[in-house]
């Protein structure tokens, strides 16, 4: 139960109930990418504006569980107004937070321990660290992030 409370922290439930930056940016200037989680059918659409190397606006739409939706909402709040280079770094940091524990759970044997993530650099996003105790939910938490990375990749940013 303690693990469950850590998974469904109040901040996560808050972002699930009241998702930030909900919607879709249209028009040719908007970058967009769609993500799917084939295991559970979660779908997400990330649209964003990048001007002069800065993410000036981002909107999230789609459907999914509390973890995928709140993670995408937290992500949108974390990257809006940030330079692309910093956004890229945050994506990497967040994904490392999710994979560090994945490696530990999979009995990685003698594999070197990855560098621990400094949670202070993640701000509110650190609320999602409880997810790593539930390996099946990691894909939910990373869906929005992978989709954002895809949108940036597609635009060669």
């Amino acid at each position: 139960m303690a693990d469950l409370e850590e998974l469904y922290r109040e901040i996560i439930l808050d972002h699930y109930r009241s998702p930030r930056n909900r919607g879709e940016l249209t028009g040719e200037a908007a970058l967009r990418a769609e993500g799917f989680n084939p295991l559970c059918g979660d779908e997400i659409l990330v649209t964003l504006h990048v001007d002069d190397g800065t993410v000036t606006d981002i909107k999230i739409s789609g459907q999914g569980c509390s973890i995928s939706q709140s993670s995408a909402s937290l992500m949108s709040a974390a990257v809006k107004g940030k330079p692309v280079a910093e956004v890229r770094k945050t994506i990497e940091t967040f994904k490392t937070l999710m994979t560090v524990h994945e490696a530990q759970l999979e009995d990685a044997g003698d594999a070197p321990e990855p560098e621990p993530v400094d949670l202070r650099t993640l701000g509110e996003l650190a609320a999602l660290q409880g997810v790593v105790k539930f390996p099946m939910r990691i894909k939910c938490a990373t869906l929005g992030w992978n989709t954002l990375a895809q949108a940036l990749d597609d635009a060669s940013l």
Binding site: L4, C40, G41, D42, C65, R137
Partner: peptide
């Protein structure tokens, strides 16, 4: 309440159910 969240909470009390599209999209 999303099916994934239902299944997760049920798991915490020992109840095994399946969330998702059940391979019947």
């Amino acid at each position: 309440v999303h099916a994934h969240d239902i299944a997760q909470i049920l798991d915490s009390v020992g109840v095994c159910v399946r969330p998702g599209h059940h391979c019947a999209k």
